[in-house]
C-alpha cells in the first residue's frame, strides 16, 4: 500500500520546518507550498491525501485556498486541516465555512497535530 502524502502549506519557513519535523516520526510523505495559490497548484499536481495549511499567507489565504479546493471537482473531497493563529469561534467558523475538515491552533502541539492527522489518514502506510 502506498504511503499517504501530506501537503504542508505555510509562508513561514520556521513553521514549515517544525511541522515537517513533527510529522517525520510518522510514515507519511511530505510536500510543501509557501502560500495558498501554490497549495492549490500542488494539490492538483501532487495528489496529496491531506493538506495542513496556515491561514494567514500572502497571495491567497488559507480560507481562500480551502474554498478553491472545494470548488474544484478533483480536490472537492481532499481533507484540509487549517492551522489558525486564533482558535476563537469566529475564526473557526470561517474555516469550516470555507470547507476545512478540522483545525489546529498555533503554536502547533506535536501530539495534537499527529492525532488530528491520524484521525484523517489512519496510521499511515
Amino acid at each position: 500500500m502506498a504511503r499517504k502524502k501530506i501537503l504542508l502549506v505555510d509562508d513561514s519557513s520556521t513553521a514549515l520546518m517544525m511541522n515537517r519535523m513533527l510529522l517525520s516520526k510518522e510514515p507519511y510523505d511530505v510536500v510543501t507550498a509557501r502560500d495558498g495559490a501554490e497549495a492549490v497548484e500542488k494539490a492538483l499536481s501532487e495528489h496529496p491525501d491531506l493538506v495542513v495549511m496556515d491561514v494567514v499567507m500572502p497571495r491567497m489565504t488559507g480560507f481562500e485556498a480551502c474554498a478553491a479546493l472545494r470548488a474544484n471537482a478533483a480536490t472537492r473531497t481532499l481533507p484540509v486541516l487549517l492551522v489558525t493563529t486564533r482558535g476563537e469561534g469566529e475564526n473557526v467558523e470561517r474555516g469550516f465555512e470555507a470547507g476545512c475538515t478540522d483545525y489546529i491552533t498555533k503554536p502547533v502541539n506535536g501530539a495534537e497535530l499527529i492525532a488530528k492527522v491520524r484521525n484523517v489518514l489512519g496510521t499511515g502506510a
Binding site: 519557513s13 520556521t14 520546518m17 519535523m21 513533527l22 516520526k25 506535536g110
Partner: peptide, 20 residues
Amino acid sequence: IDEQQNSMANLYVASFSLHA
C-alpha cells in the same frame, strides 16, 4: 520521550531559523 523530541525539534528549528 515525545516531550523531549518536541523540545529538541523546537530548538533545532529555532537554531536553524536564527543561524540560516
